[in-house]
Each structure stands twice: as C-alpha cells, then as structure tokens.
Design a binder for these strands. Structure first.
Lengths: 174, 174
DNA sequence: TGCAATGTACAACGATCGTTTTACATTGGT
DNA sequence: ACCAATGTAAAACGATCGTTGTACATTGCA
C-alpha cells in the first residue's frame, strides 16, 4: 500500500471516529506510520487532507450505490452502516466542523451531495419510467434520515426507512 | 438578561455556526460580553458549557414540538428551520465532534434523543388510537432526514418529508 | 459603615496546535 | 558509481488552546 493511500485510510478512520478538529497531526502521523515530513509532502495541509479523504469516501460510497432499484438503495445503506458503522454523514459533519469556511472541504461536500441527489433521481426515474422529483426528494430524506437516526436508533432505522420507501413507491406507481 | 443566560445564548450561536472545537474561549467571552473569569465561574469548563447549551436547546426544541398531530410535527420543524437555520442537528454534531468521549455531552445528547423519540411515539399513538412503533420510527427518520437534507436541499426537504409522512399515516389508518 | 458577593481587565500558565527546518539514511535508475 | 528521489527522526517555529491567578471596582444587604 503506497504512502498516500495509507495516509488517507488512517485519516478517514480518525476523522470519523474522533472528529476533524479533535484529530491532531501527531496522532495522524502515528496512525499512518510515517513522519510528519512525509505526511505534509503528500497531503499539503490538514484541510487538503480532509478534502482528499472526502473525495475518496465519495468514490467508495457512490460505488456501493450503483444500483437499479430504490429498494436496492436502502439495501446498500444497510450494508454500508454494517461495514462503516453509524457515526452520521462524514460530509455534513466536516462541513459543520469547519463552519463551511474551508473552500476545498465545502466543495468536496457539495460535489458529493450533488452526485448523491443525482443518483437518487436516476434510480427513481428508472423505477417509475418517468421523472418524479418529489419522490426523489422523499427518498433522499429517508436515506439521510436513516443515516442519522441510525446513530442512536441502530440498524432498525434503516429498515424502517426501507419499508417507508417501498410504500411511497407503490403509491407513486398507481 | 442575566450572565448565565447571556453566556448560553452566545455559546449556542457560536457552537452552531462554527462548530464546538473551532470556537475558542476568547471568542466566547467577547461574544458573551464578559470576562473569562466570569465565564468560568458560571460555566465550569468548556464541556459543561456545551452540555448546558444542549440542555437549553432541548428545552426550546421540545417546547416547539408540543403538538397533537404528526403533520404538526413537520409544521413545527418548518418553523424551527426558518427560525434557527439549517445547520443540521446540534446534538448529533456535538457528539460527533467529541467522539462521544465527553460524558456530560453524550448524556445530554442521549437525553434529548430519547425525549424526541418518546414524543413522536406519543403523537403517533394519539393520531392512530393505538401504538405503532414502526410508523413512529419512520416518522423519526423523516424528521431526522428533513433536518439534515435541509442543510443542502433547503426547506423543500422538510415539505417533502411532510408529504411522505401524511401518506404513511393514511396507509396506517386503513 | 462594612463585609461579602460579583463583576472587570489582563497577564500568565503549561499544553498542544499545524507546519517547517535541519540533518541523515536508503534506494533505484542511467 | 552517482545523482535524484524518497523516506526517517527529532527539534523548533509562532500561534493558539483551555484555564487560572492577581489586583481592583462596584454594588446590595447587615
């Protein structure tokens, strides 16, 4: 595993578990197993590192959500939280922690959420045979809600959301 | 307005807008218009201050959600985001920023989310005439999702959630 | 009149922050 | 054989962190 990858993997883990601001560079160098010199050569600075982490996470997340049906979106989320845990959305969290004042982070978040929204619209259209922006927005709200409710309600939140979505889809088909 | 209130109001505003960790005590004393000595006499320390802020916010939040119908829950959320803005859930954010490692904060968050869940269960039961834990979970997911989706989708997310809830309720009544 | 409480201003504490510097070791390719 | 690249270890940078100490002003009640 090359140094940049090792760094991003370690950084994502620490940022996710302890928060962005609460994670110092010392802890990061130790977890990534490299000197601070090397870390800065690869990452530039802390904000750029956070942005890289988010872009990489976006890639991994969107890959898991390359599905054909709305129900499969929720199945993908069930898998995601089983593998990644339930600590909320790292994109919204990073934006909140920085107050939206760090451009590279704000842009990475915006890019991810735009892609997420687009993907949902596509899947909804494929399922219904036509566009339905309102239903797409509802599915987005259910996915976002399941992600955050799962933090304190556990995996039940995701299955409840899944069942709700299936009712909304059935109703939209009539 | 007494000193403690002034402090908590200023702290909530800064924590919400810039994040908990990113808000230094200097900025806090300046915003609250008091010396650091006075701040510490009233707040104890930063973590206790955050916990007090959360307890106060819980009070204000729950007061707004003293309603009789599920639809009114979403109307209350529409009001809430209009007044308070769309920066996500300060409770989950504070837990994420501290990694859940600060007991007073973790407890304040747990207390709020438990009260929130209980309130939803009560309203659902009042609306249906009987308990329905799954529907309550779905309403919770929709409210949580609307709160977080509104960060990047705006108020449309809340009205979409509201419409979705009304469909789920209608279906549960049959 | 006087004491206790409550406030201010401001310097200082040690710790830690993100980042850079210095000096040196290892390696792969021409 | 040698240069360039890539890594390490460790100290140091100035800034800022949360918190406390010192010294003094104001006020309300006994």
């Amino acid at each position: 595993m090359d140094m940049t990858t090792k760094l991003i993997v370690a950084a994502e883990r620490l940022f996710d578990r302890h928060g962005y601001m609460a994670t110092g560079m010392d802890r990061l160098t130790e977890a990534a197993g490299m000197s601070s010199r090397t870390l800065y050569k690869h990452a530039g600075n802390k904000a750029q590192l956070m942005a890289r982490v988010l872009m990489e996470r976006n890639r991994r997340f969107m890959a898991r959500f390359e599905v054909q049906t709305v129900d499969a979106l929720f199945a993908a989320l069930e898998d995601w939280v089983r593998v990644e845990g339930t600590r909320g959305c790292l994109f919204l969290r990073s934006r909140a922690e920085t107050g939206g004042d760090t451009p590279e982070i704000a842009e990475a978040v915006a890019a991810h959420k735009a892609a997420f929204h687009r993907r949902i619209e596509q899947v909804v259209e494929a399922n219904l045979g036509h566009e339905d922006p309102i239903l797409a927005e509802q599915v987005l709200v259910l996915l976002e809600g399941a992600t955050h409710a799962a933090v304190y309600r556990g995996a039940d939140a995701v299955s409840a959301a899944r069942a709700a979505a299936s009712i909304l889809i059935a109703k939209a088909r009539t």
